[in-house]
Design a binder for these strands. Structure first.
Lengths: 119, 119, 119, 119
DNA sequence: GTGGTCTAGACCACA
DNA sequence: GTGGTCTAGACCACA
């Protein structure tokens, strides 16, 4: 994974997003053990507390779970992963649409544009 | 207009984008005189050269034109304004689609999602 | 190349013209690396920013392209080079004709004169 | 007439050219009295000696003649005026052709271009 | 007042 | 080393 952060959003939130995507896309698969908090902190050059906070959020959303002394693992609940995927997708769609609204593109025009684009 | 810049993109390019949107959305209308280079520089707290550069790009794209000693004005060529609007829209659509691809949403799924969202 | 400038036209525009001709005539050939911005600035005794500006224009017209950290290179798009050659030629023809008009030579008379001249 | 000079050519030569054109185009007609040396010098903001020198050249070429105490007059020799017109035209044609040669346009291609231009 | 050009010089990313 | 961006500030033409 690449870890670049911008300054407009707290790093832990950006981390949450990136880890969610890593799980959704299967970079971390169901049942996989995540690297330890310390290792992640090292790799990303970020304070371990920040990692903890991000992972806490993921655990709240049941995307990962903790086995004491063994580490943190990606959930086996594939349905939940799909649910989160849809949430993120929907959120991005909403942001995109409101973005396009600023340019005064109506939803139908946007859909039209999308259909015209190859790929 | 609000002028906040992030550090990932040159200021003059961000300015170009914002001014384009201001013209497309009619914040600055056809025939309107823009604030003088110096005034814009003051308002945005940026060097006049940076303004010049951004406005130069807009002029290259025929979105504005200069009357020497009088100032810079928004083009009367509405067709060109529409053309630029479409360019920007298309670019945003493309970015959005490739963004969604990272989340493994295919185009049709994205369009489906968009249709389901109100407005 | 020789670099002499007159005062009636901005240096960067004169530079653009000279570099275009250098590319059109093959002084700089397709794929050639141009001297670095700093070297050109030294050679021509002009500020690097002025060079940048001129080269920026050439890049806008796709006569050169930049490889970051490596330098600027002449385009491989021979067709575009020919297009620019024709543009410049046409422009010079137009200027010449209107020049001759001041002397009250009609176009046909000018063409007649040209045919009479050897070479 | 407008009098702007550039620095690459002696002013008196530029004056000669402009006065020739003024005569050829009929701005000063056959038999017209030219303004006095002093008046010309004033109008053009140039040293009277420079005017003298330019007019001397015109007199050598029999484009003007001097009536002692009355002033300088445009020649009545229309044939000579035509001859000079042709000289200047031919010179401009030659300059133009050699200019185009630098861009590697052959004479026939130039003539072709000229025929394609409207006007 | 308006915009246009240019310089000197700093600092950045990238390799 | 390469190019890219930006600032501060000067000077110009034009009206």
């Amino acid at each position: 994974m690449d870890f670049e952060f911008d300054d407009n959003k707290p790093i832990y939130k950006q981390l949450v997003d990136k880890l969610k995507i890593a799980i959704i896309t299967g970079y971390y698969k169901s049942g996989d053990r995540l690297p330890s908090v310390r290792d992640l902190a090292m790799e990303i050059s970020v304070n371990p507390n920040t990692i903890q906070r991000a992972l806490g959020e993921l655990e709240n959303e049941h995307l990962i779970y903790t086995k004491r002394t063994l580490g943190k693992f990606v959930t086996d609940d594939l349905e939940n992963i799909q649910k989160v995927r849809l949430e993120i997708g929907t959120m991005k769609v909403d942001n995109f649409i409101s973005d396009m609204h600023l340019l005064e593109f109506e939803r139908d025009e946007v859909i039209q544009l999308m259909k015209e684009r190859k790929q």
